[in-house]
């Protein structure tokens, strides 16, 4: 799957990190970094991350 985060929307809440830590991380400055092509086996976690993003900035493409 392909994951796209709208970095104009992202405000570094980090809720996605709790939902899918293999895909989303906050760096030392609290800024988001993420894997844009995670394994399809992580779909449930990534969907959860998209759900809990306060800015709804995460989009999943098949």
């Amino acid at each position: 799957m392909k994951v796209v985060v709208d970095m104009n929307k992202c405000q570094d809440h980090g809720q996605c990190v709790f939902a899918a830590p293999e895909v989303f991380q906050l760096d030392a400055n609290g800024r988001l970094a993420y894997v844009s092509d995670p394994d399809d086996a992580l779909l449930d976690e990534v969907e959860e991350a998209a759900d809990v993003c306060p800015l709804q900035a995460i989009r999943i493409e098949a």
């Binding site: 570094d12 809440h13 980090g14 990190v17 709790f18 906050l26 400055n29 609290g30 800024r31």
Partner: peptide
């Protein structure tokens, strides 16, 4: 405060 202190809160989660 700013992002760094919010991250500090998250470490207790």
């Amino acid at each position: 405060g700013g992002p760094a202190i919010a991250s500090a809160a998250a470490r207790h989660r």
